[in-house]
Design a protein around this nucleic acid. Sequence first.
DNA 1: CTACTGTATATATATACAGTAG
DNA 2: CTACTGTATATATATACAGTAG
Lengths: 209, 209
Amino acid sequence: MRTMTIQITQRQSNVLAFIRARIERDGQSPTLEEIGEALGIDSVSAVLKHVRSLEAKGRLTLEPHRARGIRLVREPDPMDADTLELPLIGRIAAGEPLFSEVRVDRRLRVSRALFRLRPDYLVKVVGDSMRGEGIFDGDLVAVHATPVARHGQVVAARVGGDRFTIKRLYWKGDMVRLLPNSPGFRPIDVDPTEDFAIEGLFAGLLRGS
Amino acid sequence: MRTMTIQITQRQSNVLAFIRARIERDGQSPTLEEIGEALGIDSVSAVLKHVRSLEAKGRLTLEPHRARGIRLVREPDPMDADTLELPLIGRIAAGEPLFSEVRVDRRLRVSRALFRLRPDYLVKVVGDSMRGEGIFDGDLVAVHATPVARHGQVVAARVGGDRFTIKRLYWKGDMVRLLPNSPGFRPIDVDPTEDFAIEGLFAGLLRGS
DNA sequence: CTACTGTATATATATACAGTAG
DNA sequence: CTACTGTATATATATACAGTAG
């Protein structure tokens, strides 16, 4: 099967470029006459032939009989694909669902490319228990939402329905130990009777001024 | 002078919402008939009156006699206004200009709202001399480009035409001291004969997984 | 085939005008 | 004023058709 893009002529390329520019500028495609005017073609029929050729070659489509009905074949928007819009989750009181809309303080955009793990939301760090990992009070931690975590990973977890905590996870048999990394902070040992949930993995960090 | 937005009626609001949705979906505004169809109005004249009212109230404009000629008054795109596209500056060899295009490794997007100081570019941190400030090897530091820095601020600077360094700045008379914050790293004292430049202020930090 | 000219026409669609109703 | 109906018409514009030229 040939999927190679069919070659367009120089003239067709100019026509396509003009259409692109006008859609960009006006939000509406030009008429055949306007295209002709721009390229010095006095006959709309000649323009129509170019446009039809471009259609046959898959570069655009024509809405039949519709004025200014040229549509560019949409290339996937690089902005949309690349840029994440992450909700910043506010304080979470006991038992409250994580993604209730009232808890989204605001949304921040950031390039997908920054992260290895795809982040799903941000949480604001409270306290300095993870300074040794470069996670400081006030930082926004990007969390990849998953309940699965391996020994030694930095996780976002909730203990006893309480608010979020960012800690390094250690399994000790069926016990869980959450390890801070800062002088004066002690490990949290979670016994099996306690309410405990891993919300996700540390995926990155954002810090403002 | 009144700049208050003139109140629109419920019906007009519905019309406007539909136009907005169609432009969003199709990239072209609907015809009067299509609007009528959607809102259960059998007469295009009635629709035209609504559209004219919206025009009088400054919510849209009409390209006269043009098919699908309704144009929304463009509100400044929140995406454009809010989202920065920061160049990530690569290694800088001696004497090389900071913004030569070859030195831009890639661009990352991030919300303006994250930062207090507007960042102009990103630099990748090499080494752990600023661990105590939560700036780790491999982090991307956002820099607000300015040659002016006050005593005690974290700056991006270049010493002896060499590569970037992120340090806390201290003035000692006309001497400059660049202070790391990590065990085993010593202050850099810059004497007045040395080539030295403050490139900008620490504006924030991005870290991937 | 590509690249045009020039004419005639069908179609989509805005727009004006005369009403009705609350 | 707002919110419609219903008709007639002007306008913008795509499209078909018959050519010419390299």
